[in-house]
Design a protein around this nucleic acid. Structure first.
Lengths: 236, 236
DNA sequence: ATATATAGTGTGAAATTTACACAATACGAA
DNA sequence: TTCGTATTGTGTAAATTTCACACTATATAT
Protein backbone atom coordinates (compact mmCIF):
# COMPACT_ATOMS: atom_id res chain seq x y z
CA UNK A 1 0.00 0.00 0.00
CA UNK A 2 1.41 3.37 -1.00
CA UNK A 3 1.67 5.97 1.69
CA UNK A 4 0.52 9.53 1.42
CA UNK A 5 4.16 10.63 1.60
CA UNK A 6 5.00 8.87 -1.65
CA UNK A 7 1.91 10.23 -3.37
CA UNK A 8 2.30 12.21 -6.54
CA UNK A 9 0.36 15.46 -6.67
CA UNK A 10 -1.08 16.57 -9.97
CA UNK A 11 -3.12 19.40 -11.41
CA UNK A 12 -6.84 18.71 -11.65
CA UNK A 13 -8.64 20.41 -14.49
CA UNK A 14 -12.38 20.52 -15.07
CA UNK A 15 -13.79 20.65 -18.56
CA UNK A 16 -17.44 21.27 -19.35
CA UNK A 17 -19.40 20.03 -22.29
CA UNK A 18 -22.29 22.46 -22.56
CA UNK A 19 -25.26 21.30 -24.60
CA UNK A 20 -27.92 23.59 -25.97
CA UNK A 21 -30.81 23.37 -28.43
CA UNK A 22 -31.90 26.09 -30.85
CA UNK A 23 -35.16 24.47 -31.96
CA UNK A 24 -33.52 22.66 -34.84
CA UNK A 25 -30.28 21.03 -33.79
CA UNK A 26 -28.16 20.14 -30.81
CA UNK A 27 -25.41 22.64 -30.09
CA UNK A 28 -22.22 22.87 -28.11
CA UNK A 29 -20.86 25.95 -26.43
CA UNK A 30 -17.21 26.07 -27.48
CA UNK A 31 -14.51 28.67 -27.08
CA UNK A 32 -12.01 29.87 -29.59
CA UNK A 33 -9.00 30.24 -27.35
CA UNK A 34 -7.46 33.70 -27.12
CA UNK A 35 -4.89 32.49 -24.60
CA UNK A 36 -2.13 29.93 -24.37
CA UNK A 37 -1.64 27.05 -24.74
CA UNK A 38 -3.15 26.18 -28.11
CA UNK A 39 -3.92 29.82 -28.87
CA UNK A 40 -6.63 30.30 -31.52
CA UNK A 41 -7.76 26.70 -31.45
CA UNK A 42 -11.19 25.49 -30.37
CA UNK A 43 -11.72 23.82 -27.00
CA UNK A 44 -14.19 23.12 -24.27
CA UNK A 45 -14.56 25.56 -21.43
CA UNK A 46 -12.35 24.56 -18.55
CA UNK A 47 -10.47 25.58 -15.46
CA UNK A 48 -8.58 24.21 -12.52
CA UNK A 49 -9.75 22.81 -9.23
CA UNK A 50 -9.08 25.20 -6.36
CA UNK A 51 -8.36 24.61 -2.73
CA UNK A 52 -11.43 24.00 -0.59
CA UNK A 53 -13.64 23.41 -3.58
CA UNK A 54 -15.25 20.13 -4.46
CA UNK A 55 -15.51 18.87 -8.01
CA UNK A 56 -19.15 19.65 -8.60
CA UNK A 57 -18.72 23.20 -7.25
CA UNK A 58 -15.72 23.77 -9.45
CA UNK A 59 -17.59 22.61 -12.55
CA UNK A 60 -20.53 24.79 -11.54
CA UNK A 61 -18.24 27.79 -11.09
CA UNK A 62 -16.73 27.28 -14.54
CA UNK A 63 -20.16 26.96 -16.10
CA UNK A 64 -21.30 30.13 -14.36
CA UNK A 65 -18.22 32.02 -15.54
CA UNK A 66 -19.12 31.28 -19.14
CA UNK A 67 -22.89 31.42 -19.14
CA UNK A 68 -23.83 33.52 -16.15
CA UNK A 69 -26.20 30.74 -15.14
CA UNK A 70 -26.59 28.82 -11.90
CA UNK A 71 -28.67 25.72 -11.19
CA UNK A 72 -28.25 24.10 -14.52
CA UNK A 73 -28.35 20.39 -15.02
CA UNK A 74 -24.73 19.42 -14.47
CA UNK A 75 -23.48 15.87 -14.18
CA UNK A 76 -20.08 14.31 -13.96
CA UNK A 77 -19.14 12.34 -17.03
CA UNK A 78 -15.69 10.82 -16.70
CA UNK A 79 -12.10 11.58 -15.83
CA UNK A 80 -9.39 11.66 -18.46
CA UNK A 81 -5.87 10.99 -17.29
CA UNK A 82 -3.53 9.94 -20.10
CA UNK A 83 0.01 10.88 -19.11
CA UNK A 84 0.63 13.32 -21.96
CA UNK A 85 -2.88 14.54 -22.57
CA UNK A 86 -1.80 18.06 -21.62
CA UNK A 87 1.63 18.89 -23.05
CA UNK A 88 2.31 21.69 -20.57
CA UNK A 89 2.13 19.69 -17.38
CA UNK A 90 0.67 16.41 -16.15
CA UNK A 91 -3.00 17.20 -15.63
CA UNK A 92 -6.01 15.00 -15.18
CA UNK A 93 -9.33 16.36 -16.29
CA UNK A 94 -12.64 15.66 -14.61
CA UNK A 95 -15.27 16.22 -17.24
CA UNK A 96 -18.82 17.41 -16.63
CA UNK A 97 -21.63 17.93 -19.08
CA UNK A 98 -24.32 20.54 -18.70
CA UNK A 99 -27.72 21.11 -20.24
CA UNK A 100 -28.71 24.75 -20.62
CA UNK A 101 -31.34 26.85 -22.31
CA UNK A 102 -29.71 28.80 -25.09
CA UNK A 103 -31.93 31.89 -24.73
CA UNK A 104 -31.08 32.41 -21.07
CA UNK A 105 -27.47 33.21 -21.85
CA UNK A 106 -25.83 36.59 -21.46
CA UNK A 107 -24.31 37.40 -24.89
CA UNK A 108 -21.80 39.76 -23.33
CA UNK A 109 -20.38 37.06 -21.08
CA UNK A 110 -20.18 34.68 -24.02
CA UNK A 111 -18.36 37.20 -26.17
CA UNK A 112 -15.97 38.04 -23.35
CA UNK A 113 -14.80 34.42 -23.44
CA UNK A 114 -14.85 34.18 -27.20
CA UNK A 115 -17.52 31.49 -26.93
CA UNK A 116 -20.06 30.47 -29.55
CA UNK A 117 -22.78 27.94 -30.00
CA UNK A 118 -21.69 25.44 -32.62
CA UNK A 119 -23.93 22.94 -34.28
CA UNK A 120 -22.84 19.46 -33.24
CA UNK A 121 -22.67 18.52 -36.92
CA UNK A 122 -20.26 21.39 -37.62
CA UNK A 123 -18.00 20.82 -34.64
CA UNK A 124 -14.40 21.70 -35.43
CA UNK A 125 -11.56 19.55 -34.14
CA UNK A 126 -10.82 20.40 -30.52
CA UNK A 127 -7.57 20.47 -28.58
CA UNK A 128 -6.09 17.67 -26.49
CA UNK A 129 -8.58 14.87 -25.87
CA UNK A 130 -11.63 17.13 -26.01
CA UNK A 131 -13.09 15.43 -29.08
CA UNK A 132 -13.19 12.18 -27.21
CA UNK A 133 -14.85 13.92 -24.28
CA UNK A 134 -17.61 15.23 -26.52
CA UNK A 135 -18.18 11.81 -28.00
CA UNK A 136 -18.50 10.26 -24.56
CA UNK A 137 -20.81 13.05 -23.43
CA UNK A 138 -23.15 12.58 -26.36
CA UNK A 139 -23.40 8.88 -25.60
CA UNK A 140 -24.16 9.61 -21.95
CA UNK A 141 -26.74 12.23 -22.91
CA UNK A 142 -28.46 9.70 -25.15
CA UNK A 143 -28.56 7.18 -22.36
CA UNK A 144 -29.75 9.61 -19.71
CA UNK A 145 -32.36 11.27 -21.89
CA UNK A 146 -33.87 7.84 -22.58
CA UNK A 147 -34.02 6.78 -18.94
CA UNK A 148 -34.88 10.15 -17.41
CA UNK A 149 -36.77 13.10 -18.91
CA UNK A 150 -33.79 15.45 -18.72
CA UNK A 151 -34.34 16.74 -22.24
CA UNK A 152 -36.59 19.40 -20.72
CA UNK A 153 -33.48 21.06 -19.32
CA UNK A 154 -32.62 22.13 -22.86
CA UNK A 155 -35.99 23.77 -23.51
CA UNK A 156 -37.41 27.04 -22.25
CA UNK A 157 -39.90 26.97 -19.38
CA UNK A 158 -42.84 26.76 -21.74
CA UNK A 159 -42.68 24.63 -24.84
CA UNK A 160 -44.84 22.65 -27.23
CA UNK A 161 -44.82 18.91 -27.81
CA UNK A 162 -43.50 19.34 -31.39
CA UNK A 163 -40.54 21.30 -29.99
CA UNK A 164 -39.79 18.47 -27.60
CA UNK A 165 -40.13 16.04 -30.46
CA UNK A 166 -37.57 17.90 -32.58
CA UNK A 167 -35.24 18.01 -29.60
CA UNK A 168 -35.30 14.25 -29.18
CA UNK A 169 -34.74 13.76 -32.90
CA UNK A 170 -31.71 16.02 -32.63
CA UNK A 171 -30.32 14.21 -29.59
CA UNK A 172 -30.54 10.78 -31.18
CA UNK A 173 -29.96 11.79 -34.78
CA UNK A 174 -32.92 9.75 -36.00
CA UNK A 175 -36.48 10.37 -37.12
CA UNK A 176 -39.05 9.57 -34.48
CA UNK A 177 -42.67 9.19 -35.44
CA UNK A 178 -44.27 12.50 -34.48
CA UNK A 179 -47.60 10.97 -33.49
CA UNK A 180 -46.28 8.11 -31.41
CA UNK A 181 -43.87 10.45 -29.67
CA UNK A 182 -46.62 12.87 -28.79
CA UNK A 183 -48.85 10.18 -27.37
CA UNK A 184 -46.06 8.76 -25.24
CA UNK A 185 -45.05 12.09 -23.78
CA UNK A 186 -48.63 12.94 -22.87
CA UNK A 187 -49.00 9.54 -21.21
CA UNK A 188 -46.09 10.26 -18.82
CA UNK A 189 -48.15 13.02 -17.18
CA UNK A 190 -44.98 15.09 -17.08
CA UNK A 191 -46.65 17.98 -18.88
CA UNK A 192 -48.96 20.55 -17.45
CA UNK A 193 -50.97 22.48 -20.01
CA UNK A 194 -50.73 26.27 -19.62
CA UNK A 195 -53.66 27.16 -21.87
CA UNK A 196 -51.35 29.43 -23.85
CA UNK A 197 -50.37 28.85 -27.45
CA UNK A 198 -47.08 29.06 -29.24
CA UNK A 199 -47.27 32.43 -31.01
CA UNK A 200 -44.01 31.90 -32.86
CA UNK A 201 -45.53 29.27 -35.09
CA UNK A 202 -46.49 30.45 -38.57
CA UNK A 203 -49.40 28.09 -39.01
CA UNK A 204 -51.41 26.20 -36.44
CA UNK A 205 -50.20 27.29 -33.01
CA UNK A 206 -49.51 24.41 -30.68
CA UNK A 207 -50.34 24.31 -27.01
CA UNK A 208 -47.63 25.45 -24.61
CA UNK A 209 -46.87 23.12 -21.76
CA UNK A 210 -44.81 23.50 -18.63
CA UNK A 211 -43.18 20.78 -16.61
CA UNK A 212 -45.12 19.08 -13.85
CA UNK A 213 -42.31 19.44 -11.35
CA UNK A 214 -43.62 16.83 -8.94
CA UNK A 215 -43.81 14.15 -11.60
CA UNK A 216 -40.48 15.31 -12.94
CA UNK A 217 -38.86 14.80 -9.57
CA UNK A 218 -40.43 11.35 -9.33
CA UNK A 219 -38.99 10.39 -12.69
CA UNK A 220 -35.54 11.62 -11.67
CA UNK A 221 -35.81 9.41 -8.60
CA UNK A 222 -36.52 6.36 -10.69
CA UNK A 223 -40.32 6.28 -10.59
CA UNK A 224 -40.40 5.04 -14.18
CA UNK A 225 -38.37 5.02 -17.37
CA UNK A 226 -39.03 7.92 -19.68
CA UNK A 227 -38.51 6.39 -23.14
CA UNK A 228 -37.01 2.91 -22.70
CA UNK A 229 -36.93 2.16 -26.42
CA UNK A 230 -34.45 4.98 -26.98
CA UNK A 231 -31.88 3.53 -24.58
CA UNK A 232 -30.58 1.29 -27.32
CA UNK A 233 -29.53 4.31 -29.35
CA UNK A 234 -26.90 5.12 -26.71
CA UNK A 235 -24.36 2.78 -28.22
CA UNK A 236 -20.79 3.15 -29.44
CA UNK B 1 -9.20 31.65 -17.16
CA UNK B 2 -6.93 30.20 -14.50
CA UNK B 3 -3.32 29.70 -15.40
CA UNK B 4 -1.29 26.61 -14.72
CA UNK B 5 0.76 28.63 -12.23
CA UNK B 6 -2.22 29.21 -9.99
CA UNK B 7 -3.31 25.60 -10.20
CA UNK B 8 -3.69 23.60 -7.04
CA UNK B 9 -2.04 20.18 -7.07
CA UNK B 10 -3.73 17.36 -5.20
CA UNK B 11 -3.23 13.69 -4.49
CA UNK B 12 -5.07 11.36 -6.84
CA UNK B 13 -6.18 8.07 -5.35
CA UNK B 14 -7.65 5.12 -7.18
CA UNK B 15 -10.18 2.87 -5.52
CA UNK B 16 -11.38 -0.41 -6.98
CA UNK B 17 -14.72 -2.04 -6.51
CA UNK B 18 -14.07 -5.69 -7.27
CA UNK B 19 -17.14 -7.80 -8.03
CA UNK B 20 -17.19 -11.58 -7.92
CA UNK B 21 -19.81 -14.32 -8.02
CA UNK B 22 -19.70 -17.57 -6.06
CA UNK B 23 -22.60 -19.31 -7.78
CA UNK B 24 -25.15 -17.96 -5.35
CA UNK B 25 -24.61 -14.29 -4.66
CA UNK B 26 -22.75 -11.24 -5.77
CA UNK B 27 -19.60 -10.56 -3.74
CA UNK B 28 -17.19 -7.74 -3.12
CA UNK B 29 -13.49 -8.08 -2.46
CA UNK B 30 -12.89 -5.87 0.57
CA UNK B 31 -9.89 -5.37 2.80
CA UNK B 32 -9.77 -5.12 6.55
CA UNK B 33 -7.14 -2.45 6.93
CA UNK B 34 -4.02 -3.37 8.87
CA UNK B 35 -2.52 0.07 8.24
CA UNK B 36 -3.32 3.70 8.93
CA UNK B 37 -5.45 5.67 8.51
CA UNK B 38 -8.65 4.00 9.71
CA UNK B 39 -6.74 0.96 10.99
CA UNK B 40 -8.91 -2.17 11.37
CA UNK B 41 -11.83 -0.75 9.41
CA UNK B 42 -13.13 -2.13 6.13
CA UNK B 43 -12.41 -0.39 2.86
CA UNK B 44 -12.04 -0.83 -0.86
CA UNK B 45 -8.64 -1.63 -2.29
CA UNK B 46 -6.89 1.54 -3.32
CA UNK B 47 -3.64 3.30 -4.04
CA UNK B 48 -2.21 6.48 -5.43
CA UNK B 49 -1.58 7.59 -8.98
CA UNK B 50 2.13 7.58 -9.82
CA UNK B 51 4.15 9.69 -12.18
CA UNK B 52 4.05 8.57 -15.81
CA UNK B 53 1.09 6.32 -15.21
CA UNK B 54 -2.33 6.85 -16.68
CA UNK B 55 -5.50 6.23 -14.71
CA UNK B 56 -6.48 2.94 -16.26
CA UNK B 57 -2.97 1.53 -15.77
CA UNK B 58 -2.93 2.61 -12.17
CA UNK B 59 -6.26 0.94 -11.48
CA UNK B 60 -5.05 -2.16 -13.27
CA UNK B 61 -1.87 -2.19 -11.18
CA UNK B 62 -3.86 -1.95 -7.96
CA UNK B 63 -6.16 -4.74 -9.07
CA UNK B 64 -3.18 -6.92 -9.93
CA UNK B 65 -1.57 -6.23 -6.58
CA UNK B 66 -4.60 -7.63 -4.81
CA UNK B 67 -5.74 -10.42 -7.07
CA UNK B 68 -2.67 -11.39 -9.08
CA UNK B 69 -4.81 -11.07 -12.20
CA UNK B 70 -4.34 -9.09 -15.37
CA UNK B 71 -6.79 -8.50 -18.21
CA UNK B 72 -9.86 -8.32 -16.10
CA UNK B 73 -12.86 -6.30 -17.06
CA UNK B 74 -12.06 -2.90 -15.56
CA UNK B 75 -14.03 0.26 -16.19
CA UNK B 76 -13.92 3.74 -14.79
CA UNK B 77 -16.92 4.58 -12.66
CA UNK B 78 -16.71 8.09 -11.30
CA UNK B 79 -14.47 10.50 -9.47
CA UNK B 80 -15.15 11.53 -5.91
CA UNK B 81 -13.78 14.86 -4.79
CA UNK B 82 -15.51 16.23 -1.71
CA UNK B 83 -13.11 18.55 0.09
CA UNK B 84 -12.91 16.58 3.31
CA UNK B 85 -13.53 13.09 2.00
CA UNK B 86 -10.05 12.05 3.16
CA UNK B 87 -9.22 13.54 6.56
CA UNK B 88 -5.46 13.16 6.14
CA UNK B 89 -5.01 15.32 3.09
CA UNK B 90 -7.06 16.67 0.22
CA UNK B 91 -7.37 13.71 -2.14
CA UNK B 92 -9.64 13.04 -5.05
CA UNK B 93 -10.41 9.44 -5.84
CA UNK B 94 -10.95 8.05 -9.31
CA UNK B 95 -13.02 4.93 -8.85
CA UNK B 96 -12.93 1.86 -11.08
CA UNK B 97 -14.98 -1.29 -10.89
CA UNK B 98 -13.73 -4.71 -11.92
CA UNK B 99 -15.37 -8.02 -12.73
CA UNK B 100 -13.31 -11.07 -11.84
CA UNK B 101 -13.70 -14.82 -11.53
CA UNK B 102 -13.48 -15.75 -7.87
CA UNK B 103 -11.75 -19.10 -8.46
CA UNK B 104 -8.85 -17.58 -10.39
CA UNK B 105 -7.60 -15.73 -7.35
CA UNK B 106 -4.38 -16.47 -5.48
CA UNK B 107 -5.44 -17.01 -1.83
CA UNK B 108 -1.96 -16.12 -0.59
CA UNK B 109 -2.06 -12.71 -2.25
CA UNK B 110 -5.51 -12.11 -0.84
CA UNK B 111 -4.45 -13.03 2.67
CA UNK B 112 -1.32 -10.89 2.40
CA UNK B 113 -3.60 -7.88 1.97
CA UNK B 114 -6.11 -9.02 4.55
CA UNK B 115 -8.73 -9.22 1.83
CA UNK B 116 -11.90 -11.29 1.79
CA UNK B 117 -14.88 -11.87 -0.42
CA UNK B 118 -17.94 -10.42 1.26
CA UNK B 119 -21.49 -11.07 0.23
CA UNK B 120 -22.98 -7.82 -1.00
CA UNK B 121 -25.88 -8.34 1.40
CA UNK B 122 -23.48 -8.59 4.37
CA UNK B 123 -21.32 -5.61 3.42
CA UNK B 124 -20.00 -3.83 6.51
CA UNK B 125 -19.82 -0.04 6.61
CA UNK B 126 -16.76 1.16 4.76
CA UNK B 127 -14.47 4.12 5.41
CA UNK B 128 -14.71 7.58 3.87
CA UNK B 129 -17.14 7.70 0.96
CA UNK B 130 -16.58 4.07 -0.04
CA UNK B 131 -20.17 3.03 0.67
CA UNK B 132 -21.38 5.57 -1.82
CA UNK B 133 -18.85 4.29 -4.35
CA UNK B 134 -20.19 0.76 -4.01
CA UNK B 135 -23.74 1.93 -4.45
CA UNK B 136 -22.85 3.79 -7.62
CA UNK B 137 -20.88 0.81 -8.92
CA UNK B 138 -23.78 -1.56 -8.42
CA UNK B 139 -26.04 0.76 -10.36
CA UNK B 140 -23.53 0.98 -13.18
CA UNK B 141 -23.06 -2.79 -13.20
CA UNK B 142 -26.82 -3.22 -13.51
CA UNK B 143 -26.94 -0.82 -16.41
CA UNK B 144 -23.94 -2.28 -18.21
CA UNK B 145 -24.95 -5.90 -17.71
CA UNK B 146 -28.31 -5.13 -19.30
CA UNK B 147 -26.86 -3.37 -22.34
CA UNK B 148 -23.77 -5.54 -22.83
CA UNK B 149 -23.20 -9.20 -21.94
CA UNK B 150 -20.45 -8.42 -19.44
CA UNK B 151 -21.87 -10.78 -16.82
CA UNK B 152 -19.77 -13.51 -18.40
CA UNK B 153 -16.70 -11.83 -16.93
CA UNK B 154 -17.84 -13.03 -13.51
CA UNK B 155 -18.15 -16.67 -14.56
CA UNK B 156 -15.48 -19.30 -15.23
CA UNK B 157 -14.59 -20.08 -18.82
CA UNK B 158 -17.16 -22.83 -19.01
CA UNK B 159 -20.56 -22.45 -17.44
CA UNK B 160 -24.15 -23.58 -17.73
CA UNK B 161 -27.18 -21.47 -18.58
CA UNK B 162 -28.65 -21.98 -15.08
CA UNK B 163 -25.42 -20.60 -13.59
CA UNK B 164 -25.70 -17.53 -15.80
CA UNK B 165 -29.34 -17.23 -14.79
CA UNK B 166 -28.48 -17.24 -11.08
CA UNK B 167 -25.81 -14.64 -11.72
CA UNK B 168 -28.26 -12.26 -13.33
CA UNK B 169 -30.73 -12.78 -10.51
CA UNK B 170 -27.96 -11.90 -8.07
CA UNK B 171 -26.93 -8.78 -9.98
CA UNK B 172 -30.45 -7.37 -10.15
CA UNK B 173 -31.77 -8.77 -6.90
CA UNK B 174 -34.95 -10.05 -8.52
CA UNK B 175 -36.35 -13.35 -9.72
CA UNK B 176 -36.12 -13.83 -13.46
CA UNK B 177 -38.14 -16.52 -15.15
CA UNK B 178 -35.71 -19.37 -15.69
CA UNK B 179 -37.21 -20.50 -18.98
CA UNK B 180 -37.57 -17.12 -20.62
CA UNK B 181 -34.05 -16.22 -19.55
CA UNK B 182 -32.65 -19.40 -21.05
CA UNK B 183 -34.40 -18.88 -24.37
CA UNK B 184 -33.21 -15.31 -24.62
CA UNK B 185 -29.61 -16.14 -23.90
CA UNK B 186 -29.58 -18.93 -26.48
CA UNK B 187 -31.10 -16.57 -29.03
CA UNK B 188 -28.18 -14.14 -28.68
CA UNK B 189 -25.84 -16.78 -30.19
CA UNK B 190 -23.28 -15.72 -27.61
CA UNK B 191 -22.89 -19.27 -26.36
CA UNK B 192 -20.90 -22.04 -27.95
CA UNK B 193 -21.78 -25.52 -26.68
CA UNK B 194 -18.77 -27.52 -25.53
CA UNK B 195 -20.50 -30.90 -25.43
CA UNK B 196 -19.34 -31.30 -21.83
CA UNK B 197 -21.68 -31.44 -18.86
CA UNK B 198 -21.59 -29.77 -15.48
CA UNK B 199 -20.34 -32.55 -13.21
CA UNK B 200 -20.77 -30.47 -10.05
CA UNK B 201 -24.54 -30.68 -10.31
CA UNK B 202 -26.18 -33.19 -7.99
CA UNK B 203 -29.10 -34.01 -10.24
CA UNK B 204 -29.48 -33.47 -13.96
CA UNK B 205 -26.20 -32.14 -15.31
CA UNK B 206 -26.59 -29.13 -17.54
CA UNK B 207 -24.62 -28.48 -20.68
CA UNK B 208 -21.44 -26.45 -20.36
CA UNK B 209 -21.08 -23.52 -22.72
CA UNK B 210 -18.19 -21.26 -23.56
CA UNK B 211 -18.35 -17.74 -24.90
CA UNK B 212 -18.47 -17.18 -28.64
CA UNK B 213 -15.77 -14.54 -28.57
CA UNK B 214 -16.57 -13.09 -31.98
CA UNK B 215 -20.19 -12.46 -31.12
CA UNK B 216 -19.12 -11.23 -27.70
CA UNK B 217 -16.88 -8.62 -29.30
CA UNK B 218 -19.70 -7.60 -31.60
CA UNK B 219 -22.02 -7.07 -28.64
CA UNK B 220 -19.40 -5.00 -26.82
CA UNK B 221 -19.18 -2.81 -29.92
CA UNK B 222 -22.89 -2.16 -29.89
CA UNK B 223 -24.08 -4.81 -32.34
CA UNK B 224 -27.22 -5.33 -30.25
CA UNK B 225 -28.57 -4.89 -26.75
CA UNK B 226 -28.12 -7.91 -24.52
CA UNK B 227 -31.18 -7.76 -22.25
CA UNK B 228 -32.93 -4.44 -22.84
CA UNK B 229 -35.75 -5.15 -20.38
CA UNK B 230 -33.27 -5.26 -17.50
CA UNK B 231 -32.00 -1.74 -18.11
CA UNK B 232 -34.90 -0.35 -16.11
CA UNK B 233 -33.62 -2.11 -13.01
CA UNK B 234 -30.58 0.16 -13.00
CA UNK B 235 -32.38 2.90 -11.15
CA UNK B 236 -31.70 4.86 -7.98
C1' DA C 1 -62.54 31.07 -50.56
C1' DT C 2 -58.86 28.03 -51.06
C1' DA C 3 -54.30 26.04 -50.80
C1' DT C 4 -50.66 24.89 -47.64
C1' DA C 5 -48.30 23.82 -43.45
C1' DT C 6 -48.31 22.31 -38.85
C1' DA C 7 -50.83 20.30 -34.68
C1' DG C 8 -53.49 16.78 -32.62
C1' DT C 9 -56.19 12.16 -32.28
C1' DG C 10 -57.33 7.18 -33.78
C1' DT C 11 -56.70 2.39 -35.04
C1' DG C 12 -54.66 -1.97 -36.09
C1' DA C 13 -50.44 -4.84 -37.18
C1' DA C 14 -46.03 -6.49 -35.54
C1' DA C 15 -42.83 -7.49 -32.18
C1' DT C 16 -41.50 -8.21 -27.55
C1' DT C 17 -42.20 -9.52 -22.92
C1' DT C 18 -44.45 -12.33 -19.61
C1' DA C 19 -46.71 -16.36 -17.62
C1' DC C 20 -47.24 -20.96 -17.17
C1' DA C 21 -47.27 -26.23 -18.87
C1' DC C 22 -44.81 -30.26 -19.73
C1' DA C 23 -41.06 -33.45 -20.93
C1' DA C 24 -36.17 -35.13 -20.01
C1' DT C 25 -32.21 -36.31 -17.07
C1' DA C 26 -29.80 -37.85 -12.99
C1' DC C 27 -29.55 -39.29 -8.36
C1' DG C 28 -30.99 -41.49 -3.94
C1' DA C 29 -34.21 -44.21 -1.30
C1' DA C 30 -37.41 -47.97 -0.93
C1' DT D 1 -35.41 -52.10 -10.12
C1' DT D 2 -38.67 -48.72 -9.42
C1' DC D 3 -40.22 -44.53 -7.67
C1' DG D 4 -39.77 -39.79 -5.84
C1' DT D 5 -37.40 -35.50 -6.14
C1' DA D 6 -34.59 -31.84 -7.93
C1' DT D 7 -32.90 -29.69 -11.82
C1' DT D 8 -32.49 -28.91 -16.93
C1' DG D 9 -34.48 -28.12 -21.42
C1' DT D 10 -38.32 -26.94 -24.81
C1' DG D 11 -43.24 -25.30 -26.09
C1' DT D 12 -47.25 -22.26 -26.43
C1' DA D 13 -50.37 -18.55 -25.76
C1' DA D 14 -51.81 -14.15 -23.43
C1' DA D 15 -50.58 -9.40 -22.43
C1' DT D 16 -48.13 -5.48 -23.28
C1' DT D 17 -45.44 -2.38 -25.96
C1' DT D 18 -43.76 -0.61 -30.11
C1' DC D 19 -44.46 0.69 -34.75
C1' DA D 20 -46.80 2.22 -39.08
C1' DC D 21 -50.00 4.84 -41.24
C1' DA D 22 -54.93 7.45 -41.82
C1' DC D 23 -57.52 11.21 -40.79
C1' DT D 24 -59.20 15.64 -38.65
C1' DA D 25 -58.29 20.42 -36.88
C1' DT D 26 -56.27 25.06 -36.86
C1' DA D 27 -53.96 29.03 -38.66
C1' DT D 28 -51.86 31.74 -42.34
C1' DA D 29 -51.13 33.45 -47.03
C1' DT D 30 -52.78 34.25 -51.62
Amino acid sequence: MDSYLNGHRVLVALDCIIFGFDGKSLKLLLIKRNFEPEFSKWSLMGGFLEENEDLQSAASRILFTLTGLHNNYLEQLQTFGAVNRDPVERTISVVYYALVTIDDQDPVTLQAHNASWIDLADKPALIFDHDQMVETALRQLRYKAAMYPIGFELLPEKFTVPQLHKLYEAIYGVQLDRRNFSRKVIATELLRGTGEKDETSLTKKGQLYALNTEKYQAYLNGYATFMPELAELAKP
